[in-house]
Computed example of a mutant assay.
Amino acid sequence: MEITPEMVDSLIAQGIDLVWLIIPKLIYAALFYLVGRFIIGKILKGFNRVLEKRDKNPSLNDFLSGVVKAALYVSLFIGIATVLGVPLTSFVAILGAAGLAIGLSLQGSLSNFAGGVLILVFKPFKSGDVIVAQGHTGVVKQIGIIYTRMTTFDNKEIIIPNGGLANSDVVNMSTQETRRADLTVGVAYGTNIKVARETILDIFKNDKRVHQDPEPVVFLNNFGDSSLDLVVRAWTDAGDLWPVYFDTMEAINTAFEEKGIEIPFPQRVVHQGKD
């Protein structure tokens, strides 16, 4: 096919018309982006201020802010695509197909994501709480959208996926102001239970950390193989639970030694018969 000067002139004219058609759309799209980005910034600042006043949970606030930011920018880019002449139905179809592909490839992560959302919204625990979960006991350091980080009392960091955490039992040991210290003390058979009980209760009376309402109690709980087992229960502030527990165990041992109350060790009596 021979290219004639008329054909070249026609192509140039069409090209110029196309450029004049595209350039305004690009300019409008750029202006739309700049204005939209400015507006999004203002909206996010206002939204973050509202979140800070309403809720002091940084993890939840970061998550909600991220969701709103993502939604606003998706809306912005849909608007830009519309300005450039991209059919909205095609654009939405592409986003839907991409979302489906991502969802299928990240099923496990989406489960953790959903668990993180549930934890942040319903707040079964918060940062700083002591919890027992997934076989671990420790202090919650950070609640992320995918993982929760906690530190055990021997300073090990535990990272737990939120999917399992949201769908299992969690014991929150920090929600109540008071806790009950439960001790089991064994005394030798033949011990005067009344004396042993009064000895233990005297220890609690002299410990200001122990609440007297409800009063501490001491019960004979079991006839063990080598001892009479006493159950000791006393209420205290949550922060004093373990100091009271360990101090009381040591005080009981000292008081029993002074009064001659024996704390037995396992023993077995063997009777030998005559042939």
Rank of each mutant, 00 (worst) to 15 (best):
Gly164Trp: 14
Gly164Asp: 15
Leu165Trp: 12
Leu165Arg: 12
Leu165Pro: 10
Ala166Phe: 13
Ala166Met: 14
Ala166Tyr: 12
Asp169Gln: 15
Asp169His: 13
Asp169Met: 09
Asp169Ser: 10
Val170Asn: 12
Val170Gly: 06
Val170Arg: 08
Val170His: 09
Val171Gln: 12
Val171Met: 10
Asn172Ile: 09
Asn172Asp: 13
Asn172Ala: 11
Met173Gln: 09
Met173Asp: 03
Met173His: 05
Ser174His: 02
Ser174Lys: 03
Ser174Ile: 06
Thr175Glu: 13
Thr175Cys: 01
Gln176Lys: 14
Gln176Leu: 10
Gln176Ala: 11
Gln176Pro: 00
Glu177Lys: 10
Glu177Asp: 09
Glu177Asn: 05
Glu177Gln: 07
Thr178Lys: 08
Arg179Val: 07
Arg179Cys: 05
Arg179Thr: 14
Arg180Tyr: 10
Arg180Phe: 08
Arg180Glu: 15
Ala181Phe: 03
Ala181Arg: 01
Asp182His: 09
Asp182Arg: 08
Asp182Gly: 00
Asp182Ser: 11
Leu183Gln: 06
Leu183Pro: 05
Leu183Trp: 06
Leu183Ala: 07
Thr184Gln: 11
Thr184Pro: 00
Thr184Gly: 05
Val185Tyr: 02
Val185Glu: 02
Gly186Lys: 08
Gly186Asp: 08
Val187Thr: 04
Val187Ile: 11
Val187Lys: 00
Val187Ser: 03
Val187His: 02
Ala188Phe: 07
Ala188Glu: 12
Ala188Leu: 06
Ala188Asn: 11
Ala188Pro: 03
Tyr189Asp: 02
Tyr189Met: 02
Tyr189Gln: 02
Gly190Asp: 01
Gly190Ser: 00
Gly190Arg: 02
Gly190Cys: 04
Gly190Ile: 01
Gly190Lys: 02
Thr191Tyr: 03
Thr191Cys: 00
Thr191Glu: 00
Thr191His: 02
Asn192Gln: 11
Asn192Met: 05
Ile193Asp: 08
Ile193Glu: 10
Lys194Asp: 12
Val195Trp: 08
Ala196Thr: 01
Ala196Arg: 00
Ala196Pro: 01
Ala196Met: 03
Ala196Asp: 00
Ala196Leu: 04
Arg197Tyr: 02
Arg197Val: 03
Arg197Thr: 06
Glu198Cys: 00
Glu198Met: 04
Glu198Val: 00
Thr199Phe: 02
Thr199Val: 10
Thr199Trp: 05
Thr199Ala: 14
Ile200Glu: 06
Ile200His: 07
Ile200Lys: 07
Ile200Leu: 11
Ile200Cys: 10
Leu201Ser: 11
Leu201Pro: 15
Leu201Gln: 13
Leu201Lys: 14
Asp202Pro: 04
Asp202Thr: 10
Asp202Lys: 14
Ile203Gly: 03
Phe204His: 06
Phe204Leu: 06
Phe204Gln: 02
Lys205Ala: 12
Lys205Thr: 13
Lys205Asn: 07
Asn206Glu: 15
Asn206Ala: 15
Asn206Leu: 10
Asp207Gly: 04
Asp207Ile: 07
Asp207Glu: 06
Asp207Cys: 05
Lys208Glu: 13
Lys208Pro: 05
Lys208Ala: 11
Arg209Met: 07
Val210Trp: 00
Val210Ile: 14
Val210Leu: 04
Val210Pro: 01
His211Tyr: 11
His211Phe: 14
His211Arg: 10
Gln212His: 07
Gln212Leu: 07
Gln212Asn: 10
Gln212Ala: 02
Gln212Pro: 03
Gln212Thr: 06
Asp213Trp: 12
Pro214Val: 08
Pro214Lys: 09
Pro214Ile: 07
Glu215Lys: 15
Glu215Leu: 13
Pro216Lys: 06
Val217Pro: 09
Phe219Leu: 15
Phe219Asn: 15
